[in-house]
Computed example of a mutant assay.
Amino acid sequence: MRYARWVVLLAAGIGLAPAMAQDVLVLAGANDNPNALINGVFDGSTVAFRPEVPSGGTTPGNVNYLYFAQVRAHRSATPGCTRIAQTNDGNVTVYAMGPGNAIAPVAGSPFTTGPDTEALAWSPDGGALYVPLYGTSTVFVFTVTCNGGVVTATAAGTVALSGVFSLVDAWVIGSGPGTHLCLAGRTSSTVGCFAIDATTRLPSTSPVNTVAVGSARGVRFALNGCGILAVGNAFVSQGVRVDTKGFLTLTSTAPNVAQARYGAISADGTLAAMGSDDNGFSVYAVDSGCGLSLVGTDQSAPADPYVMYMAFDSRNRLYVADSLENRIRVFAPTSTAIGPAIASVLTSHATTSAPAGLDVVELSLPDALFADDFE
């Protein structure tokens, strides 16, 4: 029997009713002015969208224009301490999911960073949020705590990195506070990982090593150290392996449907996907050596909606944001085929120029808890 779900509107945000174990929370940015957090629940057959949560920030909000942005979620085993982050134009909004699964911005949000804030990465323990600034080599670091169910974010400092420039994407590897912050530099055409100080949460200024990735756009890693990188100036995705010391080794490349943009890799490291600057995406099987092999491509999105952002859930279902088309699709790919979409739903946003950024995570009873390793 399927239990009914309901929405409770709160003064500072929204409430989501407790969800069944198979339900997945879908999060995306509105790509609008004012900006907002799009959120809905996938029940295995469709996505039911809830009222948006105001971010307090903006993006340009132009019709037929995609402002590069991200949404990232982090789980906490402590009720009331789950958290979400979303980029706006020049700042970042941090949300908490409290009692009753209410999503609301934390005190001080949005936090000023700078123009072209495009990327986000949580530490594995949720205690730090890393915000690279595009057009620079600077990373903003926020420490995030939760006491008595109250989430607090505090600026910890900025770090200027060497070896990478025009930072467009980031990921933290390791456990606890994380061992290394890995970043993609578009202008430098490099990807590098920087050791993280477990006390200050700040990354070192020099990378362990860098690897050459043309017009690097995306960087994603699974728990087994396998990853996928976006070769932004070619129709190519790049496989990569990272060791516990943050040393990167490129593996194999595989074709992408168009110029590669942002990707995703399943938590078990067996499947990966890459978005593009066009109307399609590609899915890959990942072997034990972290090499990529093309499973297939999908170009079923009409027009040219920028199919850039995607994420896997723990069942290896793939969620795809059709930006500028106001739609999210869900697939169940395997190592041999992508298959047709099992859901294709317009979001609740009022204009068609959404979504930007995407994250997903299972909901559980009695509290909604985020999984650690998702886009």
Rank of each mutant, 00 (worst) to 15 (best):
R2H: 10
V7Q: 08
V7M: 12
A11P: 15
A17G: 15
A17F: 03
A19L: 09
A19V: 13
V24P: 14
L25T: 08
V26T: 02
V26S: 04
L27R: 01
N39A: 07
V41D: 01
D43V: 11
S45W: 15
S55W: 02
N62E: 12
Y65F: 10
Y65G: 12
A69E: 09
A73R: 01
H74K: 14
G90M: 07
G90H: 14
T93Q: 08
N101M: 07
N101Q: 05
F111G: 07
E118M: 05
A121E: 07
Y130E: 10
P132M: 05
G135E: 10
T136A: 13
T138V: 11
F142M: 10
V144R: 03
G149C: 09
A155G: 14
A155P: 15
A160H: 06
G163W: 01
V164I: 08
V168M: 04
V168T: 01
D169Y: 00
G174P: 11
S175D: 07
G176F: 06
P177H: 01
L181G: 03
A184R: 01
T187N: 11
S188D: 04
S189C: 13
I196C: 03
D197A: 07
S204W: 06
S206D: 07
V208I: 15
N209L: 11
N209R: 09
A212E: 15
A212Q: 13
V213F: 02
R217W: 02
V219W: 00
A222N: 05
G227Y: 00
I228P: 04
I228E: 00
A234S: 14
R241P: 06
D243W: 05
K245Q: 14
L248V: 02
A254E: 00
P255S: 05
P255R: 01
P255L: 00
V257P: 05
A260Y: 03
R261A: 01
Y262F: 11
A267R: 12
N279P: 11
G280V: 06
S282H: 02
Y284E: 02
A285D: 08
D287S: 07
S288F: 11
G289M: 13
S293V: 09
D298I: 03
P305N: 00
Y306P: 14
M310C: 03
M310A: 00
D313F: 06
L324V: 10
N326E: 12
R327L: 11
F331M: 13
A332S: 15
A332R: 15
S335F: 06
A337H: 04
P340R: 02
I342F: 09
V345G: 07
A350I: 13
A350N: 09
A350V: 13
T351Y: 09
T351A: 13
A354D: 04
A354E: 06
A356N: 14
G357T: 05
V361K: 09
D367G: 02
F370L: 15
A371P: 14
D373R: 11
